[in-house]
Nucleic acid binder design. Structure first.
Lengths: 232, 232
DNA sequence: ATTCATTTGTACGTATGTATT
DNA sequence: AAATACATACGTACAAATGAA
């Protein structure tokens, strides 16, 4: 029997290996499931399960009826994982979600000087436009999640793609959490908080900026902890 | 036909739903694959593929021959995803790995004050012992990855479980990267860098601590960028 | 616009390996 | 040591989606 030894290379790792050794990049096609099945000498079911794993990590991307491709950089896996974990704990503690707020605030405040120093005028302008869009929607009673997200991404722009990716991921987790947490925050106040951050940047005072960021997160944190269910 | 509508709830989401509505917690058992197959009205193959996805995210944990259980909080998915992404880019830019160093440094430096204020004596003592263990191994020419990891985890202790988890995850990614990057850093210098961090904490000077942290990461970053392959 | 080949998605049956009692 | 409950693996058949002829 040609069965692999226990603890030997898994199908998942062999597919990863295939991608690396063949120097495939994001968007490049993988062999079909049948071809992989033959090349690796395992059944198609097994290939499919391995591909499911890789797909969950966005290492590959599967298009129904078309093919399988090397995936793009993504934090979706982390978002899903954290979000679900937050829901699980939602009964007792909101632990994950609350800590997430701390973490976001920590990163943004600690980058205050860097942001101040190197935020591009274009980014600042985009952020200004976003706050205006927020204000408009707020007075119409609408939410503005997309604008909020983009605002914070632009804020992190200078810190590199990884930081931007993480910020976006945390924001997404928070959005998922928020959804299952009841009515949104006071829209007008949220807009004002973002305007305050932007004003601080243009004013050029790092201390004011840090204070504005903290003020922005204060009601969010408050909302998280307020939702702590009464222990029965 | 009872087939679900296009875009309807996926098997993955239905299993997540099952866990939440039944108030299962980490370690609690899920129905067997056959039972799930019946309850959800889909074939066992589908269940298996869905479980593979959930397992990749550590939302469930499968024990061969025993059963499937709700998983523990984990960053394994992010580690695997980031590590592979780093390998992919390793040809051209080392982009992800290099940014990871920046991010780790950012987090630790920005927590300097908090660390200083609230690191427990027990943690400090443990860290001191770790540096001693590092020194011992270093003079024997051995590496000390485990001690290094534990040191940085203790450093973040005060910042909450999420921060600790992220720190561990980043460290793991870095370790995976390091493996495929050639010989390790200068062991003696690495030990000294950790000792300097610890000394700074006990001395109680946040500025010195930040400098020590930056000094710790400098050679690591240098190593990353130095490895940029000569473009052919 | 239809048909056709290709590729992934779903289903089911069967056999085998593995851990627990 | 045996029995049981389970996950793992394979093969085949068919459904659904996509792109191209």
């Amino acid at each position: 029997m040609l069965s692999p030894v226990a603890g030997g290379p898994t199908v998942v790792s062999r597919i990863k290996e295939y991608i690396l050794t063949n120097h495939l990049g994001p968007g490049d096609p993988l062999p079909t499931e049948n071809e992989l099945s033959q090349q690796l000498g395992v059944s198609r079911s097994r290939i499919r399960e391995a591909v499911k794993t890789l797909s969950a990590l966005d290492i590959v991307e599967v298009r129904h009826g078309y093919g399988t491709y090397v995936g793009q950089m993504s934090f979706r896996a982390m978002v899903e994982s954290l979000a679900f974990r937050g829901m699980l704990n939602a009964d007792d503690g909101l632990g994950v979600f609350a800590e997430l707020v701390d973490f976001r605030e920590l990163i943004e405040t600690s980058l205050a000087d860097k942001i101040m120093a190197s935020l591009t005028p274009q980014a600042a302008l985009s952020m200004r436009r976003l706050t205006e869009a927020m204000a408009e929607k707020a007075s119409a009673g609408e939410e503005f999640a997309a604008e909020d997200r983009e605002f914070h991404l632009l804020l992190m722009e200078t810190a590199g793609t990884l930081a931007v990716g993480m910020t976006g991921a945390f924001w997404d987790v928070h959005a998922l959490a928020s959804r299952s947490l009841g009515p949104p925050d006071d829209l007008q106040a949220t807009v004002a908080a973002h305007v305050a951050i932007l004003d601080a940047i243009e004013k050029g005072d790092a201390d004011v900026l840090r204070a504005a960021i903290r003020a922005h997160y204060a009601p969010i944190r408050e909302r998280m902890t307020r939702r702590l269910p009464p222990r029965t």
